[in-house]
Every structure is written in C-alpha cells, then in structure tokens.
Design a protein around this nucleic acid. Structure first.
Lengths: 134, 134
DNA sequence: CTCCATTGCTACGTTTTCAGTAGCAAGAGA
DNA sequence: TCTCTTGCTACTGAAAACGTAGCAATGGAG
C-alpha cells in the first residue's frame, strides 16, 4: 500500500458536505422515520443525550448557561450549546437577557406531561429491588 | 506527572477498565447525576438513542428482532441488540420464544404514560408552522 | 438428508457524537 | 485598570452509532 511519489501529507476532509446541523422537527424526516410525523420528531429530539435533562433542570425556573451546566453535572459547554440551539430552534425554550434560559409555554406544556414520570420511576425502582433481592 | 526517562513507545490502551456496560437504573449514579434518584436513571435511559423508539414500536404488540429492526427504519443490529439488553436488564421488556420481544407490565405502564405525547407533538407541529409562515 | 429461508444475533471498519479542557470577547462593577 | 461573571467557540481524544457482512441455530420442503 501507500504508493510512492507524492501527495502524502494532506488528507483531512475529503467530504465537503458540511451541511448545517438542524434539530429534528415535525414535518421533516428524522432518524429512522421518513414520514415526518410529529411524534417521531419528538422521539428523535428527546432521544438525544441531555435534551430531557436540560428540560428537567429548567422545570422550576430559568437558569443561566453556567448554572445549567452545573445543574447537569458538568456537561461540556459545546454539547450544552448544541442542545440549547436545538431547543431554541424547535420553540421549546428561549434566552432572556436578564434571567438566562427559560422554557416557552410550549416547553412548559411538554414538561408538565413528563412530570408524572417521577411516580413511574419510583415504582420502577421498587420493582427492580424486589427482582434483585427476593 | 510522567517522569522523564523512558517508556515512550507503547501507548495504546492505558485504560484496561473494560467493564461490562450496564444500563442506567435507579439507585445507581448515572450520567450527570450521582444521587441515584430513579427519575434520573429514567432520564438517562430514555435519553439514549432508540430506546424511546423501540418502546414506541412495541406499543401495539410484540415484534421479532428483525421486525423491530425494520420498524425502526433499519437500525443497525448491534445497536438494537445493545438497547434490547438495556431494556431487558431494567425489566421493561422480555423475550418470548414464540412471539419475540414484548413489553412487561412495567414497560406497558411507562408507554401508557407516554402516549399523550402524541397530542402534544401535534400541537407542537401546528405551533411551529405558525411561527414559520405567519 | 440436502436445500433454503428465517431468526437472532456477532464482528468490524467507518462516521458521528460526546467529553474534557482551554480560552476568548463582552459586560459589569470596584 | 483589574477582576469577575457570562456565554460561548476551538480543539483533541474517547465513546457511541452506523452499515455491511456473515454465522449458528431452527424449521420446514422436497
């Protein structure tokens, strides 16, 4: 391999398709589903790492970038920023100069639907305990 | 760190901690949260790619591995298998010889909590439409 | 038994995403 | 001016996901 001659130095980015990354949204094909059904976009969106956690941490009020970063246990700023962009783009949260990042009305409706999951998670925990040390 | 002198050659796998991968579960620290609170484990679990989708596709009955793979739009078998292991380990689904993969009672309770998300997602879609072409 | 199809995976090389750290520009005080 | 906070961007290395190939086991059909 490696034919002698020249061109041995630069071989970095042969793929110039540097398309902008967009958040999943209803009406567009998402990962694993080309139908554009809203629920599929939602599944794709909240299936991304940190998305659910970010919404969860904002449930009781707005947080600044740094506060949110800390609340998420030290998530790296690049990923946090990417997720915040996704969530802003899809209308779930917004950035207020004064207070930081806060959920929109739409975002609040979503997290309200998600709060009962706490109860389920606790049943789940008890169930798993029983299964392990019976 | 790294006292000078020698040992400059091999530097491949300095981390031999090849621990088995375990699914997030209540009572244990998860990504970004050391408290072990059940809801954090749940957020970690369903924040993994494909987990929510798999549960969604199983909502109306059991599917075989291949059927599930197809239902998820051609997810790669290695990832599917990993997610199925997570979900079995956490008691959300089980593998029946005859019918394939099916949700447990616990899993069904979870997806029942998640079905209203369809309605939210549709409001979301309408909202985004209004915001784009007003 | 041989042939073929189906099922549930495993292997492995490539690509994408995430993690972790460093650091910078802008603004607010002191 | 100096310092501090805030909201990021850049970069490198590690982990996760993708995509394809393929294999062992099972179950008929002929």
């Amino acid at each position: 391999m490696a034919p002698p001659g020249k061109a041995q130095k630069t071989a970095k980015k042969p793929a110039p398709k540097a398309a902008k990354k967009t958040a999943p949204r209803p009406g567009r094909p998402v990962r694993g589903s080309a139908t554009g059904r809203p629920v599929m976009a939602l599944i794709d969106l909240i299936g991304r790492r940190w998305v659910l956690r970010i919404l969860w941490e904002l449930r009781s009020g707005p947080l600044t970038f740094r506060a949110l970063q800390e609340a998420c246990g030290g998530i790296s700023p690049s990923v946090l920023n990417a997720r915040l962009a996704d969530l802003k783009e899809t209308g779930l949260l917004e950035h207020e100069e004064a207070e930081g990042y806060r959920m929109t009305q739409l975002g609040r409706e979503l997290t309200e639907q998600l709060t009962p999951l706490t109860g389920w998670a606790e049943r789940w925990a008890r169930q798993l305990e029983k299964m392990q040390k019976p």
